[in-house]
């Protein structure tokens, strides 16, 4: 589904990604972790070309992301993305946040889009908030709306960029619950997250990045059982202490 081949990226002369290669198969849940500044967020933004990269190739469902003739808006509409800071549109109501792209990108009728939006709001347990504005919701609620907004496009895979990092601790689980449910339904997911509990529960593979390189790319059991690199061992010991 997602193929990342030898992707390298520089900011000026500073290299942020070095020959990153991995893949996410259909129905697979892959967790990407690593210390801050290791390039995980940059890598996941390269997948749907929110960040350009200078070398290598990213192929989604047979379409090369970086190629010249690629219809990026069309490709992105098939790849759902959830951001660290939610990025709901503050000037639109919750239901408008969910229907906007359905109408403008997928050309759905306003009614069909609204029905779809309401169904997804019900799924994330926020039907009562349909006509409120993002600023009136808590962080956890906003992030669940953001997930619903991405799902409204019927994506073939979902990208999560640290979806719980900006949340207060008591709101993390309500977001993770939605993600776990999604994973169990067979959604293809690539998640940048430090939630190792989530990784243990639903991930098939775990990728560990450090200094712009993919240091480990292992099945969940191998990763938590016997990480091969020193750096991964150190990282795990730091974040699993508490």
């Amino acid at each position: 589904m997602i193929e990342i081949k030898n992707v390298s990226k520089w900011y000026g002369s500073f290299q942020v990604l070095t020959k990153c290669s991995t893949s996410v198969k259909k129905g697979e849940v892959v967790v990407v972790c690593g210390p801050s500044g290791s390039g995980k967020s940059t890598l996941i933004k390269c997948v749907n070309a929110l960040e350009p990269f200078q070398e290598g190739e990213v192929v989604i469902d047979g379409t090369s992301v970086g190629a010249a003739g690629t219809d990026l808006p069309r490709l992105r509409s098939k790849v759902g993305m959830v951001f660290q800071h939610f990025e709901l549109f503050p000037h639109l109501s919750i239901i408008e946040n969910l229907t906007l792209a359905q109408v403008k990108v997928l050309n759905r009728s306003a009614e069909a889009a609204r029905d779809k939006g309401l169904a997804l709001l019900e799924r994330v347990g926020l039907t009562a908030h349909a006509d409120k504005f993002p600023g009136q919701l808590s962080g956890g609620q906003q992030q669940r709306v953001a997930i619903a907004r991405a799902l409204a496009m019927d994506p073939m895979c979902m990208l999560f960029d640290e979806p719980t990092s900006a949340l207060d601790p008591e709101m993390i689980n309500e977001v993770l619950d939605v993600m776990v449910q999604l994973a169990q339904e067979g959604m293809t997911m690539m998640c940048v997250t430090h939630e190792m509990g989530f990784a243990r529960k639903v991930a098939h593979r775990v990728i560990f990045m450090d200094k712009g390189e993919i240091v480990e790319d292992a099945t969940k059991d191998d990763f938590f059982g016997k990480p091969r690199s020193e750096r991964a061992v150190q990282f795990l010991s730091k974040i699993l202490q508490h």
Partner: peptide, 27 residues
């Protein structure tokens, strides 16, 4: 308007023009 808003628009499949017109300029 935060850069993330532009990313969010693009990620939903909106074009540059749509992102500006529907997301960034109203804000």
């Amino acid at each position: 308007v935060a850069r993330g808003q532009v990313y969010a628009g693009y990620a939903l499949g909106l074009t540059y023009g749509q992102t500006m017109r529907l997301i960034v300029l109203p804000q």
